[in-house]
Every structure is written in structure tokens, then in C-alpha cells.
């Protein structure tokens, strides 16, 4: 029997590295915090709200996202969108992700056949 908490910790750690990629992938068009959260959830990727909102702000301060307040509706919303630098970063990260998937597939398959 493996330690449940340990497993959860490890899964959390594994997933944490992919969060940024997941967020960048959905911001080719305008999203506000909650719509992005729902969109990710619809596709099966759940990021906690308490993690996502600060992450968006951090990515913005790193220049990867642009933001705009929409005050036309009765509740103001902050919309986020990939900046040029963000788009480029996303492309690079995507390449890296594909490499990682290939490498690990290779490792895992290789281990099976032994």
C-alpha cells in the first residue's frame, strides 16, 4: 500500500509544472478569471481558483499576458489575453512539452519491454 498523501503530493508537483502551459494555451482569445477557470474545467483540467487568479497576475507582470478592464457590463471584469511575448513563450513551451512527452513515453515503453 503506498502512502496516499505522498501520492497526492507527487501528482500535485507533476501537475504544477504544466499549469502555466495550460493557462497560456487558452488565452489566444480574451478570457476573464472565472471564464478561464470554467473553460479549463470543461476540458478536464482543474486548477484551483486560489491558484489561477494569482497566476494570471504574475504572468501579466512577466509581460506574457495583456489585460483590460471591461466596465461596460454591470460588473467590471478583467480580461486577459496573450501578449506577443506570451505567444512566443507559449510556442516554445509547447515544443518543450512535446519533447518531454516523447522522451518519457520512450522511457516508460522501454521499461515495459525489458
Amino acid at each position: 500500500m503506498i502512502d496516499k498523501t505522498l501520492l497526492e503530493n507527487m501528482i500535485g508537483e507533476l501537475r504544477r509544472g504544466t499549469q502555466i502551459l495550460a493557462v497560456l494555451s487558452q488565452l489566444a482569445d480574451n478570457q476573464y478569471g472565472y471564464s478561464l477557470l470554467q473553460r479549463l474545467e470543461e476540458k478536464g483540467v482543474s486548477i484551483e481558483a486560489g491558484t489561477l487568479y494569482p497566476l494570471l497576475r504574475r504572468l501579466e507582470s512577466q509581460g506574457l499576458l495583456k489585460s483590460e478592464w471591461d466596465t461596460t457590463e454591470n460588473r467590471p471584469r478583467k480580461y486577459y489575453l496573450l501578449s506577443d511575448a506570451g505567444t512566443e513563450m507559449y510556442d516554445q513551451l509547447k515544443l518543450e512539452w512535446n519533447t518531454i512527452v516523447k522522451e518519457l513515453d520512450h522511457l516508460i515503453e522501454g521499461a515495459k519491454t525489458k
Partner: peptide
């Protein structure tokens, strides 16, 4: 401001 908006959503 952002947090208020998010909570409202």
C-alpha cells in the same frame, strides 16, 4: 478590484 470581480463571477 480583481478579486472582487472574480468572487462576483
Amino acid at each position: 478590484k480583481e478579486l472582487n470581480a472574480n468572487i462576483g463571477d
